[in-house]
């Protein structure tokens, strides 16, 4: 029943996808020192899942990463970003003022590092969740294509 003319693709993809995720994490956490950041890492995560869906089929990808998870991930990302702003508010600073997170003098960097790390995580969640939701919406729709279109 299983056709095996995609064996090479399947094997290569299975070894490649963890490396793509690892690269996404590198891009995410190395964004302070080199090119990269939450937007790029989020898209790379989404692209890794899309590759899985292309090779193993959309239902398999939906079983591994359910659409409910991706859309909640997008919401959690935006809330995490906004939550950092409220954290700064509660600490007595202004909205998204990282300097106030740990009550630092100007020139202190701890708050800035933590704040930027958290909002980049929020961007990662938001972008990857939204992109995967978009992909699932397109891929999950049943194509009703006429024969003469081909």
């Amino acid at each position: 029943m299983k056709s095996d003319h995609h064996v090479i693709l399947r094997v290569v993809t299975k070894t490649l996808i963890p490396i793509i995720f690892l690269f996404a994490l590198y891009v995410q956490f190395h964004g302070d020192f080199g090119p990269g950041g939450g937007f790029q890492a989020g898209v790379i995560v989404a692209v890794a899942v899309i590759l899985y869906a292309l090779i193993f089929g959309v239902p398999a990808a939906m079983r591994a990463i359910p659409p409910v998870f991706t859309r909640s991930l997008a919401a959690v990302g935006v809330m995490l970003y906004a939550g950092v702003g409220f954290w700064a508010l509660l600490q007595g600073g202004q909205y998204l003022e990282y300097q106030a997170l740990f009550h630092e003098e100007p020139g202190g960097h701890h708050g800035q590092h933590v704040g930027i790390l958290l909002i980049e995580l929020g961007v990662l969640f938001g972008v990857s969740g939204a992109m995967l939701t978009i992909f699932y919406a397109f891929a999950g729709r049943v194509a009703e294509i006429r024969d003469e279109d081909w």
């Binding site: 239902p59 997008a74 935006v78 939701t133 978009i134 919406a137 891929a139 729709r141």
Partner: peptide, 18 residues
């Protein structure tokens, strides 16, 4: 996020194929 939401509202969340 809103764009993802809009696409999902227009096309469904994609659970139909699953």
């Amino acid at each position: 996020f809103v764009a993802g939401l809009a696409v999902a509202l227009l096309l469904g969340f994609g659970e139909r194929s699953l």
